[in-house]
Structures are given as C-alpha cells and as structure tokens.
Design a protein around this nucleic acid. Structure first.
Length: 480
RNA sequence: GCCUCAGUAGCUCAGCUGGUUAGAGCGGCGGACUGUUAAUCCGUAGGUCAUAGGUUCGAGCCCUAUCUGAGGCGCCA
C-alpha cells in the first residue's frame, strides 16, 4: 500500500479540513483501549488522535502499535467525539514503518528524569519536554539571524581551526594529524609541528571575536554564530566543552551602543519565542510550576517562566558600573553578616557568582548590565578608560544563569594596546594580523559574545545546560 | 580541579537501631475491554542492593577505595 502526500500534524490542527481524507506519519505516543493512537510527528507539541476499528485492522498490525513505533495512517479527518481534542482521524489504513520492541524501548508513557534521558540523548527527542526544547532552540537560532539581518549586519563565518594561541579565553583543544605514537621531533627534542598538517600548531577556536573585528572594520557590522570549544575541566550546569556563541562586532560603536544592541537583541529573541513558541513554552511553564510546587516555599521562584520572559521584555535592564556594584555589595546584608563565601572588602575584587546572583536576584530583581570593570581582571583587548584603572567592559547577568553576555569596547589605539599586551604577556608576533587593523584605519568599535545555550536555558527554564543542546560535550562525555 | 550529596527491578522510589525469604507504583509479558486522554481492570515474571575490599555471629544499611550521576565553587559564554 502506498501512502504519499503526508500532511504535517501542525498543518492539520491549524487548518482542520474536516471531511477530507489525509495521510499522516509519525511516532506512537500511546495506544489506549486498543482503539486510540496518540500520534506525534514532531511538527508541533500536540499529537493527533487516530481512531482505529480493531475489526478492520489485522491483529498483526494492531500488536505492533506500541509506544515509539513509526506509523503511516490514511483516513478521514473528523470532529472528535471525545473531549480532549477537537479533531481526530478515522483510520482506514495503517502501515507500520518501524516497530519499537516494547521490551527494550526505554521511553514509557510516564515522566522520566532528565538525567535518565540524558543517558539516552539519541532518543530523548521523542519526549514532550525535549521536543519542546529543540523546537524552541531552533526558533531562538532563527530569531537571532532575523534580528541581525533586520539590523543590517552581515553573517561572517570565522574559522573553527585557529593557529593563534593567544586569545586567552581558556584551554584549547589541539588539532593535529600527527601520529601520536610516533611524533616527529625537532633537534632539541620538541614536537616538530612543521611536519603537521598546517605546518604549525593548531587548535579549535575559543572565540571568533578577533576575526570578527577584522570583518567589522570593513563591512561595518558583522556577527558570527558558530561552535566554540573550551577544553576547561568545568563541571557545572552552565558550561559545555562544545557550545555555540553569537558574536556581533560593530565599527564606530562605543560601549553604550554595544549595551543598547545587546539589550535590544535579547528582548527581540524573547519576544520572538513568546509569539512563535507559545504552546511549547506553555508546556514547559506548566511543568516547571509542578516542580516548583514540590519545593519548600522559600525556595520557589517568585515568577513563572512565562512571567519571567514577559518581565524581561517589558522592563529596562539595570545598568550600573562595577564601582557602584561594589558599593551595593559592601552595604548588603549578606556581606555585613558574612554570609558570602567571599566577603567584598575593597574595590578591585573579582565578583563571584554569589555576588552576581545577589545583584540580579535580590537587589535589582531583573537583568543587570555591569560595566567599567577594573582593567586587571579583564582581557587585553578592552578599551582603557580615561581613569587608567577601568576598561570599557560589560557583562549582562540573567537570573538563574549568571553571565549570558560578555562584551566590551575594543582598544583601538595601537600604542595602548601594545602596552596592555606586554603587561599581560600576550605575544605580539602571533597577533600581527589583529594589530594591523589598528595600524590602518583604526576606529572605535565594540562587540560582545552571547552564550547561545545559556539563552536557550533562560527561555526554556532548564536548570542544566546539557538539556538544551542535542548532544552535550562535557569532560568525559562524547559518546554520541 | 575542589567541596557536598546520591547510586536498591527497565523507570521513579520505599526499605526502621545492622537481624529470617528485598517492597510499591509505572513499564514488560498473558488476558479482558469500541469513546480512551500518562486509559482502566484481572493475572504474572522480573534483583550480583554501582564495583572491589573490609568490620561483624550476621551488611542493602557501618568503614575504605574506585566508578557513575546530581548540586555548589573555580574557569567563562
């Protein structure tokens, strides 16, 4: 039996062509009463109810309709006789494309823990929660491209394999084709990278920023959106070894314009998902409410997921300097009562995540942009302020996530930049290409990096970053 | 990398102060059921208590090490 021209379930539910004979294909969520199949094809959160008459369908086929099985169904779309759904299909033909052995299929029609599903990440797409998360992840990705396109930015593909070891953004993964059991050596006994594929040491990128700066100082405004790799042994709910980062870079923009762009982008993304992912978000919202209701009252969050998202869109982010933040923290209760693990005593201290969390979740109760940090706790390329002590850096802090964006105005004065590089032991020779844009037609420019998965975490309300990327890469984990 | 907590059936968990044969719900298997909504009902199988040592007359429970997972910290996005 041939079944062509399948209609996606989201289209059927939106258009509801009652009385038409249609073909749908998808995977069984549940089969109730030997009569009602709940079929999901991934096109939307909702499943479609298929009604089979067990006298019309062979026993052999009926036996194969179990959770996870792939089916094709042909039948007439009718108004549902039951409650719970508006339309259903009165099945005429059912094909089983691929059965799913119920003795071994790990997904049951019940709630599973996210930790368990992470162990079977290749199958977790089939669940309600992860279906919703990955549809939303797509929408956020699309919204980012749409935002920058509307703002007249160019999407720049920066390299994934890089030679420079000087970006200072963390430990790097090595890229090599050398035989590790028999590496060629130079005369003084070191590994001879001249014999390697690129005839030099290479690594996976930790940031596309330096390359993006080169693009921005010709194309005006560009953004990158690609995979980024950090070989840090980070074991937290906010870090991945392989993650995606969005890095806009704008010529002639100062730090204020940089902050404006970042805030506008974040609000655009959230608004886009509220409009286009309402059903998936509603489901995640309700799931989180249920989880919250299990917690003791003082640990529950004040706002629901949907309220938090709407709040972010409706109100301006708080903007304060590092210096103002230190004042607030010094006067704060947890600092006076020594509740912080790191007590803030003087200007210049690096802020710990407990401090950032206090500012965002207790003091301002909304996203916070911190700027003008002490220069000695920030990267070499950030523009030094006139006070000589601070740099034009900014971090955007979100509730529950911490730093979601880190950015700065870049130092465009080559003499100051060279001094900074000497101070911080950054080798000049390796970055000659980066310095060249300061030699020829240098200009003020700014940019930032958005942690894409952290954004998806915020929008979906997921506590662990491993649950918002299809195949998480973390220390000790790269199985599939 | 550091600190804390956890690991009992396929999944989620209970298991008292160390004491006889290890418990439930869901799932599986067999059956019933034509308006169900994580369907329901009847019956049934299923365990190297993470692994390796140790203490004890006796260990799921106590101790040590290892592995795995979670939460927190650092690094950062």
């Amino acid at each position: 039996m041939l079944m062509k021209k399948r209609t996606r379930i989201n289209v059927l539910l939106a258009e509801q062509p009652i009385g038409e004979t249609v073909v749908v294909k998808g995977w069984v969520k549940s089969f109730r009463n030997n009569q009602f199949i709940s079929l999901n094809d991934g096109s939307c959160f909702d499943s479609l109810q298929i009604v089979v008459d067990r006298d019309d369908v062979e026993e052999k086929i009926l036996k194969q309709i179990t959770p996870g099985a792939a089916l094709g169904v042909k039948g007439k779309l009718i108004e549902s006789r039951g409650k719970g759904q508006s339309v259903e299909i009165d099945a005429e033909d059912v094909i089983v494309y691929g059965p799913a052995n119920p003795e071994t299929y790990p997904l049951q029609p019940k709630k599973h823990s996210k930790e368990f599903l992470r162990e079977i990440a290749h199958l977790r797409f089939r669940t309600n929660t992860f279906g919703a998360i990955f549809r939303i992840r797509h929408a956020i990705s699309y919204a980012i491209h749409q935002f920058f396109n509307e703002q007249k930015f160019y999407y720049l593909h920066t390299p994934i394999i890089t030679a420079s070891d000087a970006e200072g953004a963390g430990e790097m993964f090595r890229v090599t084709t050398l035989d590790l059991d028999n590496t060629p050596k130079t005369e003084d006994g070191k590994i001879d990278f001249k014999k390697d594929f690129f005839e030099r040491e290479t690594h996976l990128t930790v940031s596309g920023q330096l390359e993006a700066e080169l693009g921005a100082l010709a194309l005006g405004q560009v953004y990158t959106f690609g995979p980024t790799f950090r070989a840090e042994n980070s074991n937290t709910s906010r870090h991945l070894a392989e993650f995606w980062m969005v890095e806009p870079e704008v010529a002639f923009a100062d730090l204020e314009e940089n902050m404006d762009l970042a805030e506008k982008m974040l609000k655009y993304i959230i608004t886009y998902t509220l409009v286009n992912c309402s059903q998936d978000l509603q489901f995640l919202n309700d799931q989180l409410e249920k989880e919250e209701s299990q917690k003791p009252k003082n640990e529950r969050s004040a706002m629901s997921l949907l309220d938090r998202l709407q709040f972010c869109v409706d109100y301006d982010f708080a903007r304060i300097t590092y210096t103002e933040a230190i004042d607030i923290l010094k006067k704060s209760k947890p600092n006076k009562k020594k509740k912080f693990n790191y007590i803030i005593e003087e200007w210049g201290a690096d802020l710990q995540s407990e401090h950032e969390r206090y500012l965002v979740e207790k003091h301002f109760k909304k996203p916070v942009i911190l700027y003008d940090y002490p220069k000695n706790i920030k990267a070499f390329y950030m523009k030094v302020n006139e006070d000589g002590k601070t740099v034009r850096a900014m971090d955007i802090l979100f509730p529950g996530i911490g730093e979601i964006i880190g950015g700065s105005q870049r130092e465009e004065n080559i003499d100051i930049l060279l001094d900074r590089m000497k101070e911080m032991n950054i080798p000049e020779e390796e970055l000659y290409w980066y310095l060249d844009i300061r030699k020829y037609g240098s200009c003020p420019h700014s940019g930032y990096g958005l942690g894409f998965e952290r954004m998806v975490q915020f929008v979906t309300g997921m506590g662990n970053i491993r649950d918002v990327i299809p195949f998480p890469r973390t220390p000790g984990n790269a199985a599939f």
